[in-house]
Write a protein that binds this DNA or RNA. Structure first.
Lengths: 180, 180
DNA sequence: GTCTATAAAAAGATAGAC
DNA sequence: GTCTATCTTTTTATAGAC
């Protein structure tokens, strides 16, 4: 079978969930194995070390990112609105992966930092292609980043104040192009 | 002496630096003591546990936040521009403290999450008082958040693309009020 | 492929000397 | 106040049975 075994996927998914929900420190081999429903030995068969687990997350993330970039360049609403809208989407597979990669980056995993840097520059390029102005493109990126930062922080302030106001925000995005 | 001893401050500062630069996992008692130039025993005299160290960070942060909020409500440039401008300031004492608190929040320290939530709602209120519209106030908050998120990520994408363009961005902020 | 048992190192914390 | 020594628990990783 060319397809990777189900247990491997379960381990990766458990690790990502732990990174997102409880942070890098809590994402131990034991906790990951337990959440995946396997033993520590079982986990270490599929991922020989902690580092291998991180590599697995990053590779899996790259696939989701590729899909997202393709879609972003094709949607009729335009790259900017697509970017801000999807930045506010929580619990998508892409979002879970990116939060996990961010946690790894903050824990000092170099390849995770490099991936985030690369993804951001690719998003920026697509937005710049649409809006045609560097400053406006930066503004759009920062709004999405801010949104993402809030949503990626459990129990964040947004939940009480921002909830339900996303549409109003999205309506403002196309108008940003009129600035200057 | 009513003033806390210098060694205590050094320990707190070392812990904050480690949280910011290497993440929560790397900020061990041993690493903190070493960076502060004391032994593990010396560190544990001032902070009886890891939790006490986190409490120390949060208390110290609260003081810096108070000063910032007072200044934000008084500056002639207005709360919005002040907020976005200072969000881009890296290596200030306030910024270092807030990054440290964010790391703790992501590691599951509840009081750190609560502090961040509280700070954000106070910033939001001052901005809302100035701009008078909820959606615009959210936009301003998100731009600052995005800026902060980039700067708080070492080796971030901003350094190559965004560097030197801050003034252009700040010039756009007052114009956001004209939207809608 | 998956498990149990176990080793080796690191981390948090205590006790007591100075 | 600060240090060294020590203990306990946790974490990563290995070995080998099934």
């Amino acid at each position: 079978m060319a397809r990777p075994p189900a247990a491997r996927s379960k381990c990766l998914d458990a690790y990502i969930s732990l990174l997102c929900e409880e942070g890098e420190r809590a994402a131990t081999l034991e906790a990951t194995a337990s959440r995946a429903g396997v033993s520590k030995g079982g986990l270490l068969y599929h991922f020989a070390s902690k580092e291998a687990l991180a590599v697995g997350v990053i590779e899996s993330t790259e696939e989701h990112v590729q899909l997202d970039l393709t879609r972003m360049s094709e949607v009729p609403e335009g790259a900017s609105v697509y970017y801000v809208r999807t930045s506010a989407e929580v619990d998508t597979e892409l979002d879970r992966h990116l939060v996990a990669v961010q946690r790894l980056a903050q824990a000092g995993v170099i390849s995770a930092s490099e991936m985030l840097k690369d993804v951001h520059s690719r998003w920026f390029q697509l937005i710049l292609d649409e809006v045609g102005d560097q400053s406006i493109a930066h503004l759009v990126i920062l709004i999405g980043e801010g949104l993402y930062a809030h949503l990626a922080t459990p129990g964040s302030w947004y939940q009480s104040t921002f909830d339900g106001r996303l549409q109003e925000l999205l309506d403002l995005v196309p108008q940003l192009k009129k600035l200057k």
